[in-house]
Amino acid sequence: MSKKILIVDDSAAIRQMVEATLKSASYQVTLAKDGREALDLCASQRFDFILTDQNMPRMDGLTLIKSLRGMPAFMRTPIIMLTTEAGDDMKAQGKAVGATGWMVKPFDPQKLLAITAKVLG
């Protein structure tokens, strides 16, 4: 049974690239366009790993993580931010709301697969 991964990003290009990368390693991939859509999906499904952008319409990544950490099913789920933001203050905020890690765009597919395997391992 392959692991289920949720990708949250308002950029269609990023969703497409992350999906292509993770599917090449036979992961099951679900896509969401923003934090709100992701939160709706998480209400009815479980995911083994979540990869989210920060700046998105309706709900940003930090708010999403904060909300998910309040749900028993997602308290310990690995959630990594994949964003163009690279400031230390933003990273500190991510850490404070319970993010597992921080990846700055653009991502390298091999590195993404390596980090995915690591957090799922």
């Binding site: 933001e85 921080w102 990846m103 700055v104 991502f107």
Partner: peptide
């Protein structure tokens, strides 16, 4: 602030908390 801090296309840094 501009949400983009990088000005190159090499892969960005990764940090696990």
């Amino acid at each position: 602030h501009n949400p983009v801090s990088r000005n190159e296309i090499t892969s960005g840094e990764i940090e696990l908390f």
